[in-house]
Structures are given as C-alpha cells and as structure tokens.
C-alpha cells in the first residue's frame, strides 16, 4: 500500500471541503442543531420527570454517539460520491491507485471530517448541557471504536451500492442510519422491542453500545462480553464491506461499468 497515493485521496477531499462552504458547513451544522435540540429536550424531560433520572447522559449522549456513527458513515460515502458527481472514475481508476489505497483514502477522509463533528458535539453537549463523558469511564473508548468501525463498514457498503447500481442509487444510502436506528436501541432498551426485532439487534454492533450506555447511567457494570461481541461484529462488518466493494469493483471492471459509469447499464 502506497501512502502517497492514499494521501492524494485525502488531500483531494480536503481541497474540496476547504474550498466550499456548502461542504464545510454540514460537517458541524447538523450535529450542532441535533445537540441543541436534544439538549433542550433532555432538560425539559429532567424538569417534568418525577424520578431522579438524568436524561442527559442517556438521550443526549446517545444522540451524540449516533451522530458520530452517522458522520463517519456519511464521511466515507461523501468522499466516494465526489468521484461520482465529478465523473472522475476513469481518471482515478486508470492510475496506479489500488483499491485498498482508494478505500483507505476514503476512510482517512472520513476520519478527518467526522472528527470535526465530534469535537463540535462534545463542546456543545458539555458546555451548554453539562454532558460529562467521564460518566462513561473507559468504556467510551470501545463505544467510539465500535461506532467508528460500523460507520466505516456501512460507508464502504454504501459506496459499493452506488458503484454497482449507478449514481441514482445514492438515495438508498443516505437514509441507512435512520433505517438502522430503530434496531440499534439508540433511545430505548432492546427489551422494549418485539422478539423479531431483538434478533436483528443482536447482529448490530451499536445495540451493544447503547445497552451499555444505559447500564452505566443506571449504575450497573459494563458488560465486557457485550462490548467484546460488538467489537468482533464491527470488525466482521468492515471485512465484509471491503470484500463486497472489491467484488463490485471487479464486476465493474469486467463489465465496463467503470469506464462508462454514468451510462447506468446495470441489470
């Protein structure tokens, strides 16, 4: 793997983001709005609730972590979509750049852009609404790791979907986090869900993260086995997504889709 070539993809994305307010603003604007909205909702719930239950670390913390996952996923797909929108596939894939270098560049671009959103969310949630990450303890590290890996996996899967089904299929991939969220138990315990939904929860790494977030807030211990399962699952998703992307890329090279991408000759 040639780091120069990978860095070219990152630099390309940084050029695009830094030179365009339309790309720069969404990095932090939507997550900031989410923080403010959910910050006040949790404050209100704390005020009207008779129980001595703090909604801030449960709801606001959950929204922050979920937004982080969403930003990571969208970070990968956005970097990929830039090549779709600028019809750049032929220029990019007719170079010595390998698929691992290209995907590596997408992931690094996503780290850079999602880090901006994460910092903005942490600053807003802690300074305005008093959300303290110290409450999560060291478990915060695997929480972020699992959500990061799962975001990367779905981002790569989204890119593979667009590569396979053509530019118009981008509308399949933007709502993926919203589609996953009911099963991930972001705002409620998994036990709340009907049995069939709980089966799906078990194979989604974020569900273990949010179960543990609620356990910590309730004063219970973190489940090391749950976190372990979620890390392993997230790694499996990343490996699986990379495998699918490579398969789709090879199919595109075999059928000529890369060279005539905008033609949408998919059957």
């Amino acid at each position: 793997m040639n780091l120069n070539r990978t860095s070219a993809i990152v630099i390309r994305h940084l050029y695009l983001v830094s030179g365009s307010p339309a790309r720069l603003l969404p990095l932090f604007a939507w997550v900031a709005i989410d923080m403010v909205l959910w910050g006040f909702i949790t404050k209100y719930l704390n005020a009207v609730s008779s129980a001595k239950f703090d909604f801030v670390p449960v709801f606001l913390g959950a929204v922050l972590l979920w937004d982080f996952f969403t930003r990571v996923m969208h970070g990968v797909t956005m970097a990929f979509m830039e090549d779709v929108w600028s019809r750049n596939f032929l220029n990019i894939f007719a170079t010595p750049l390998s698929i691992s270098e290209y995907v590596g560049g997408l992931v690094l671009s996503s780290i850079a852009t999602s880090a901006v959103g994460l910092v903005v969310m942490i600053v807003l949630a802690s300074t305005i609404f008093g959300l303290s990450f110290l409450a999560y303890g060291m478990a915060l590290v695997p929480f972020l790791l699992v959500l990061f890996l799962f975001g990367i996996a779905l981002g790569i899967l989204g890119a593979a979907t667009v590569l396979r089904f053509g530019p118009a299929s981008e509308w399949f991939i933007w709502p993926i986090p919203a589609l996953v969220s009911p099963f991930a138990g972001v705002f409620y315990p998994v036990a709340t869900l009907p049995r069939w939904m709980q089966y799906i929860c078990r194979v989604l790494p974020p569900s273990y993260v949010f179960e543990n977030v609620r356990a910590i807030v309730a004063g219970a211990a973190v489940s090391p086995s749950g976190l372990g399962i979620s890390v392993v699952l997230a790694i499996v998703y990343v490996v699986g997504a990379c495998w699918i992307f490579v398969r789709v890329y090879r199919h595109s090279v075999r059928t000529g889709l890369i060279a005539r991408y905008s033609a949408e000759t998919v059957t």
Partner: peptide, 20 residues
C-alpha cells in the same frame, strides 16, 4: 475531463501524488 470542482493546480497535485 478532470474534476471541475478542483483548481488546475489542485488537480495536478492530486494526480501527481497518485502517480508518485
């Protein structure tokens, strides 16, 4: 054509890095 959303210099720099 090269990406229209990058400048002339940026395009050459990105592809220069890719080609080492």
């Amino acid at each position: 054509p090269l990406p229209g959303n990058l400048s002339v210099y940026q395009n050459l720099r990105v592809f220069g890095l890719i080609y080492g």
